[in-house]
C-alpha cells in the first residue's frame, strides 16, 4: 500500500521527469512497434507468396500413361507432398490462351500444340523451404517420364532470405531500443533516488527494510515502462492508421502483441529500476 502511495507521490513530485522519461521510453518502443508492424506485414505477404511455392514437372510428349501413373504415385508417396495435379497439353494451351490474350494470334496459327503436359506438385505448408523444394524437384528429375523440373529456385531462396533478414533486423533493433528504454528508466530512477536521498537516509536510520525502501522505486520504474509502452502502442497505431489510409493498406498487428509490448515495457521498467537501485542506493 505504502509502495503504491509513494510511487504515485513520486510521479506527483516530479511530473515533468515522469512525463519526459515515459515519452522517451515511448519513442524508443515506438520504433520497435513500427518494426513490429513492418515485420508482421512482411511475414503476412511472404506467407501469401509462400503458399504459391510449388514444383512443376514437365513430362515428355511420348510418356506412357503407365509411366505417368507411377510418377504420380511416387510423388504422392513423399511426406512433404499434399497434392498432385496433372495438366494435359490441351489444358496447358487453354490456360496459356486465357492468361496471355496478347499472343492469341500466335496461338491461332499453331499446327501442333508446342506446350508440354505437366505435373503440378503442391507442398505441405511447412515444407516450402529451399531444401525440401530442391529435394522434391531432384527426385522428380530422375523419373524417365520427366523432361524438366521448374520451381523458381532463385526466388524461393530470396524469399527465405528476406524472411530471415526481417526477423533478425527486428530482433537486433528491438533489443537495441529496448536497452535504450531501459537506460532511460534507469536514469530516471537514479534521479528519483537522489531527489529523495534525505528520505532514504532517514528511512534507513529508523530501520525501514531494504524492500520497503526499494518497492516504490521498482513500482515507479514498472509504471513508467508500462506508460511508455502504452504511448508507443498509441503512436504505432496512429502511424499504422495514417499509412493504411494515405499510402497503402497494412494489417494491424494482433492485440496480443500490443499487450505483450506494454507488458514487456513494464517488465523492462522493473528490471531497469532494480539494476539502478542496486547500483545507486549504496551511494546514498
Amino acid at each position: 500500500m505504502h509502495a503504491i502511495r509513494e510511487a504515485i507521490a513520486g510521479f506527483r513530485r516530479a511530473p515533468l521527469l515522469t512525463a519526459l522519461s515515459a515519452t522517451m521510453v515511448g519513442l524508443a518502443l515506438f520504433v520497435v512497434g513500427l518494426f513490429g508492424v513492418a515485420t508482421y506485414n512482411l511475414h503476412e505477404a511472404l506467407s501469401r507468396i509462400e503458399d504459391r511455392v510449388e514444383v512443376v514437372a514437365y513430362v515428355r510428349d511420348n510418356a506412357l500413361d503407365e509411366e505417368l501413373r507411377i510418377l504420380e504415385e511416387d510423388v504422392m508417396a513423399m511426406p512433404e507432398v499434399v497434392g498432385v495435379r496433372y495438366v494435359s497439353k490441351d489444358q496447358a494451351l487453354e490456360a496459356a490462351r486465357r492468361d496471355l490474350p496478347e499472343f492469341e494470334d500466335l496461338f491461332a496459327g499453331l499446327d501442333t500444340n508446342p506446350l508440354p503436359a505437366s505435373m503440378e506438385v503442391e507442398l505441405a505448408s511447412g515444407a516450402r523451404t529451399p531444401d525440401v523444394v530442391a529435394r522434391v524437384a531432384e527426385r522428380m528429375t530422375l523419373h524417365p517420364a520427366v523432361e524438366d523440373v521448374r520451381y523458381g529456385q532463385e526466388w524461393v531462396d530470396r524469399l527465405f532470405l528476406l524472411q530471415n533478414i526481417g526477423g533478425i533486423a527486428t530482433l537486433i533493433l528491438g533489443s537495441a531500443f529496448a536497452v535504450v528504454a531501459a537506460l532511460i528508466i534507469g536514469t530516471a530512477i537514479r534521479i528519483a533516488l537522489f531527489a529523495r536521498r534525505e528520505e532514504i537516509q532517514v528511512m534507513r536510520l529508523v530501520g525501514a527494510t531494504n524492500g520497503f525502501i526499494r518497492r516504490p522505486f521498482l513500482l515507479e520504474g514498472a509504471i513508467t515502462g508500462a506508460l511508455g509502452g502504452t504511448l508507443a502502442a498509441a503512436a504505432t497505431w496512429g502511424a499504422w492508421w495514417g499509412v493504411s489510409n494515405a499510402v497503402f493498406p497494412l494489417s494491424w498487428i494482433p492485440w496480443s502483441w500490443v499487450l505483450a509490448g506494454i507488458g514487456a515495457g513494464a517488465a523492462f521498467g522493473l528490471l531497469a529500476s532494480a539494476v539502478s537501485i542496486r547500483r545507486h542506493l549504496q551511494e546514498i
Partner: peptide, 30 residues
Amino acid sequence: RRRVGFVFQDFRLLPGRTARENVAFALEVT
C-alpha cells in the same frame, strides 16, 4: 536500527514537512 535510536548534530529532519510529519514518517516506514 529499530532497537537503537540515533540523534545527529545536524538533526537530519525532512525539510518542507512539519514536526508531526517528521515523527510520523519514522512510524510509517517501520
